[in-house]
Design a binder for these strands. Structure first.
Lengths: 231, 231
DNA sequence: ATCTTTACATTTGTCCTACAAATATAATAG
DNA sequence: CTATTATATTTGTAGGACAAATGTAAAGAT
């Protein structure tokens, strides 16, 4: 006996708060609550569910953090539009994320960077191109690009996708990406090597080229990162 | 006076719980808490911060939801590895997300689908290809592909990226994606039209082709979706 | 001295009461 | 009918209480 008992996970103890949180979210969706709709007050919920007001408040506290409900002191609670990235924002911290998750995020950035080509070409404007060109011209005068320069150029690309969530998402991913790459290359003295494809090259393709050519160039540009990925 | 007062947002009232939540997260990172590390108990935190235990528990309840801390009843709390997607999972619900966020997620899926080519080719195995071929062969016999068939094929592709987070992320995005597309095309009678590039075509390229060719084909495959994106 | 049993202290989960403060509503006065 | 006043409502916060199970210390047995 006791041979493989170590492999048995303890079944996660579901607290009252966990259950109330789930019940409330189901209640909201099943009853088609819309932003602005008034919610039953805390005491009412507690009595209906036969739990203390404390438990209800702990569950509601979570939903408030997600932006799902809004509490207006002394006026009751209303349904609200959740903040899509509020939850992930708080855990996107290289110092508390698992190595595995950090690796996943590192790769996710590479995936995103390659995937945006279509949207860049579909939505680029002359104003965008002018602004991007200004960034590129400024960087041409520099002997070497800093991390901030990288962020400035690629950040502008995310802007140009016209997708607000994606743009914010990327800025959250970036610190983790940098952290992963830094910890992989802490021996190397040269942080930014000579780019086989420069920002200027990418800009020119975005101006006059095709999505396909852009992706091909972006892949070259990110080669140093792609070379780190393992089977 | 009062001319553009309507544009002024009320400054969000930061509750004690909000502040304690932030303080605790800062405290964890600044003191380099690692998974498994013991945390001060609730009463201690409350006294140090000069707030009631209720407030501390509401803040901790949020961090527990994110998987950042784990409470072991009667044995104290320990730091834990946060669940990267726990927060976003609860709000990825088409019925409560804003139209704008839904659009962003729709586009994000298109971005991701185009970006995975590199990883598919880097990590594909014979076993993966065999399994994918089986899916393709089965679908060849069908007169028309259902939503489930789409999920099965593309889901297998996400599997093959070897990125666990990405794979889970995608499965969360999918319902929203479907919802957005369904609401855009609710007049049309034909849900799945004749694909200009079939799953079989994609499979063959993945087997013997190049990432570039794959992306080109994938773009054709997703053409019906790409056609909906607006400048 | 070592092992076993017992008692105690600890800590989270849950419940309860209480009250301040500001808003919305009802009641009253002008 | 309007203006003022009083009342009720509801969240935010504080604080007390206790069950239950765990770890630890103390006491007892061999």
């Amino acid at each position: 006996m006791n041979s493989k008992l170590g492999l048995l996970e303890p079944l996660e103890s579901v607290s009252m708060t966990d259950r109330v949180e789930n019940i409330l979210r189901e209640y909201f969706t099943e009853n088609a609550f819309k932003p602005g709709d008034a919610l039953p007050n805390e005491l009412e919920i507690a009595q209906k569910l036969n739990v203390s007001r404390n438990v209800v408040r702990e569950a509601l506290s979570r939903l408030r953090m997600l932006g799902m409900v809004e509490a207006r002191p002394r006026r009751g609670m209303i349904m609200s539009q959740p903040d899509l990235l509020a939850g992930i924002e708080k855990v996107l911290n290289p110092f508390i994320l698992s190595q595995s998750n950090q690796k996943d995020i590192f790769e996710l950035r590479l995936i995103l960077e390659m995937g945006i080509a279509e949207f860049l070409f579909a939505r680029k404007t002359q104003k965008d191109l002018d602004e991007l060109e200004q960034i590129v011209e400024k960087q041409k005068t520099l002997p070497v690009l800093s991390k901030e320069d990288e962020i400035e150029f690629h950040g502008k690309l995310y802007d140009m996708t016209g997708n607000e969530t994606f743009q914010r998402f990327q800025s959250l991913l970036f610190p983790v990406f940098e952290h992963v790459f830094a910890s992989m290359t802490n021996q190397k003295d040269n942080y930014v090597l000579v780019d086989p494809v420069s920002h200027a090259d990418l800009f020119n393709i975005l101006k006059d080229g095709t999505p396909e050519a852009f992706r091909k160039a972006m892949h070259k540009h990110l080669e140093v990162y792609y070379n780190t990925i393992k089977k």
